[in-house]
Computed example of a mutant assay.
Amino acid sequence: MSRRTATLLASTLTLIALLCVALVTPTPYAEMSPGPTVNTLGSYGGEKVIDISGRTTYPTTGNLNMTTVRVTGADYRMNLVEAVLGWARHDDKVVEHDTIYPGGQTAEQADQENAEEFSQSQDSAKVAALEELKIPVQSRVIVASVVKGGAAEGLLHAGDVIKAVDGHQVAAADQVATFVTKHSPGEKTVFTVVRAADVKKKSPPTQQVTITTRASDDSGAKRAIVGIAAGVEHLFPFTINIRLADVGGPSAGMMFALGIIDKLTPGSLTGGAFVAGTGTIDDKGDVGPIGGISLKTIGARDKGAKYFLTPADNCEEAAKDVPGGLTLVKVKTLDDAMAALKDIRSGATSKLPSCKS
């Protein structure tokens, strides 16, 4: 064997060895890519995304698409080759694993958190939509969760309605902590509640539950606590079901709210146009920022969207790389989104507030 052939063979074997190492060496990175985009006015997986009963609904046209980002799983570690290829692809984004799954979050924990955020976003979307339409929504303060081993364990239960604390009527979730912390740790507090099992009764009975408070784990001065999280349960005047399997997180809230409004009002919000978007929403209709905006705009454009409703706090990032043929529309509130849709369906697109880098 000649020296040249031996050198070439050694180099080839070294390259193969390095490639093998790269294929099995895990990296601290995860990959994000454009995920599915779904029309909130249509169906997905054979079911209506938004299904309303008990109230008159109207036919809709066009698209109000929510957008998603697909990410590698919490337990999956990209190898070096995958990371390099991901960095090279324009439509994908390689980020540190802890950016998506902080603190070593497991797949189960991530799924649970996403499911909870998705459920909350649906609830807020319903409230914001009905408030926009001037349809009253009642609410009540409930026990959202009970801390295992806490003072209230076995005395209060998730779903119990909190009517009063120490005789003080409760109208907002944060009032519960306010009344409890008036005590010193070790003192007793009295909750007036309607048990979860009784709330659907015509005249549900109330119970008084006495709990001995404990000291908080805070540094510095200790607060009196009972070991519950208080929350708000909304009582809707008719049924609104949002069904979208395999999707989590809060970022579809605004688009769900718009879809609900479109179905509950005559005519079409879009005028038949293909509009996509993203953004969290709260009960008051304020639109919040989300992650992966550049990937969501790519997914929307690839699906056929012409306009993209963009949270104001994401505008600068989104405007740095706008997919061709897509117009970014800046929105801060549900009212802003409604105004933008009015301009789109009337053809007054020059009035649309745009995102700038």
Rank of each mutant, 00 (worst) to 15 (best):
L244K: 07
T270A: 07
G253W: 02
Q207M: 08
E316F: 08
T12K: 10
S251W: 06
D92I: 03
A348R: 10
D166F: 08
A340K: 00
I50R: 00
A22R: 00
G325E: 12
K332V: 06
M66G: 14
K48R: 14
I260Q: 00
I135Q: 09
D218T: 12
I298S: 02
K330E: 11
L130K: 02
N79H: 11
I240V: 13
S11H: 08
E31K: 14
K342P: 01
E316W: 09
S268E: 05
Y58R: 04
H90A: 14
T210W: 09
G159S: 05
S43K: 12
P205Y: 05
P237I: 07
T310D: 12
G279I: 09
R77M: 10
I100S: 04
G231H: 03
K356S: 15
G272E: 03
V329C: 07
A10C: 13
E82N: 09
A339I: 04
K201H: 06
G104D: 14
R4P: 04
K148E: 14
A129M: 04
E131F: 10
T192G: 07
G154A: 03
G149K: 02
T37A: 14
G231A: 07
L85W: 07
H234L: 08
D174K: 15
L15H: 06
C315I: 08
T37G: 05
K201F: 03
S346H: 06
R140H: 08
I135G: 10
E108C: 02
V81W: 09
V146A: 02
Y29W: 14
N65H: 10
S11D: 12
A74W: 02
S350A: 15
T99Y: 15
A215G: 14
S357G: 11
A276P: 01
K330F: 07
L235Y: 04
V275A: 01
Q120W: 08
V137Y: 08
L155T: 01
V38F: 04
D286I: 13
A305E: 06
E131I: 05
A151L: 06
G277H: 04
T14G: 14
A22I: 02
V209R: 01
S350G: 06
N114P: 04
T333H: 05
N63S: 14
A197H: 03
L80A: 15
V127F: 02
D111G: 05
G299Q: 02
F238C: 07
T12S: 15
A337V: 01
A177Y: 15
I293N: 02
L19M: 11
S11T: 14
S119P: 03
G292A: 11
V232L: 06
V176D: 04
A164D: 06
R345Q: 08
A221W: 03
M255H: 05
T280P: 07
Y76M: 12
D321S: 15
A276F: 04
P204L: 04
T280R: 09
